[in-house]
């Protein structure tokens, strides 16, 4: 029987909704993960731990493996070797993308990806946790509780006045916030946020920093970002990736004077300062 269940798991036909167990204080474990594409090691023996409720920034030059790392966590790419666990018990390598999304890992893409022909409210409803089951696609009516959740998130991302507008006509920054709001509708434990402030005005960046800081604590947040000013404004714990592995980890101030980090990354040009 248990064999059958695990087979169904592999086929993605049966999604176990078990609560994530982060009793050891760690929410996400990546251990000795390696993945190569045509002989090129995009991720090379990477080990990384994200604490429960932590806000972590990941930096690194282009090609350091940041996006590939997110692909592995969210099930898009399967690594050649290594272990990826969500809490103590959930093996992420056994799940496909939709299952991983449903157990509470939300991912924001680099380019803001909202569904443009739909309204802001419809985008949020689409992302709502529990909305994804096939039988709920046809029959679904929003419950009062779900309506409240949508409006709470709308408030949180500062788009209360734009609920009825089409997502396609929002400003760039608002689209980014909407996408973060869609992740929140999934009731995630872990948020993976890829370059949230690319192309934002300073004021928008400030609001985004506030939003992400407010999410930490109740969620673990992993932010991949190039903008050092922004990184400084949100995270105290920073991981530097280089050639698919962790080069250094620590407070940004310490990293900025680390000669190794300076050589591969920070020293590469003034653009990053």
């Amino acid at each position: 029987m248990s064999e059958l269940v695990s087979e169904l798991d592999a086929a993605g036909l049966h999604t176990p909704i078990e609560p994530v167990d982060a009793t050891h204080g760690i929410l996400l474990y990546l251990e000795e993960v390696t993945v190569s594409f045509d002989g090129f090691k995009a991720i090379d023996n990477l080990s990384l731990y994200i604490g429960d409720g932590e806000l972590r920034c990941i930096i690194g030059p282009n090609g350091a493996g940041k996006t590939t790392m997110m692909d592995i966590i969210t099930g898009k790419t399967k690594p050649d070797t290594g272990r990826v666990f969500f809490g103590q018990t959930i093996d992420l390598l056994k799940l496909d993308e939709p299952s991983i999304a449903r157990i509470g890992i939300g991912r924001k893409f680099q380019r803001p990806t909202v569904i443009e022909p739909l309204t802001v409210l419809e985008n949020l409803e689409l992302a709502m946790s529990g909305a994804q089951r096939l039988d709920r696609l046809i029959t679904a009516r929003l419950t009062g509780e779900e309506r409240d959740q949508i409006h709470a998130v709308l408030d949180q991302i500062g788009l209360t006045e734009h609920g009825g507008r089409l997502a396609g006509i929002l400003a760039h920054g608002q689209k980014q916030w909407l996408e973060i709001g869609m992740l929140l509708m999934q009731k995630p434990r872990l948020l993976l946020v890829d370059e949230p402030v690319a192309g934002m005005t300073p004021a928008e960046m400030e609001r985004t920093a506030e939003l992400l800081r407010s999410l930490a604590g109740s969620h673990s947040v992993v932010v991949v970002e190039h903008d050092m000013g922004f990184v400084r404004s949100i995270a105290d714990q920073v991981t530097v990736l280089h050639q698919g592995r962790v080069l250094a980890e620590g407070r940004l101030e310490d990293l900025q004077v680390d000669p190794m980090v300076i050589e591969v990354y920070l020293g590469a040009g003034d653009a990053y300062h």
Binding site: E97, S99, A101, R107, T113, Q132, L134
Partner: peptide, 9 residues
């Protein structure tokens, strides 16, 4: 991809 990462099969 957005649909998939929102949990839709």
């Amino acid at each position: 991809d957005r649909a998939r990462f929102l949990g839709y099969r």
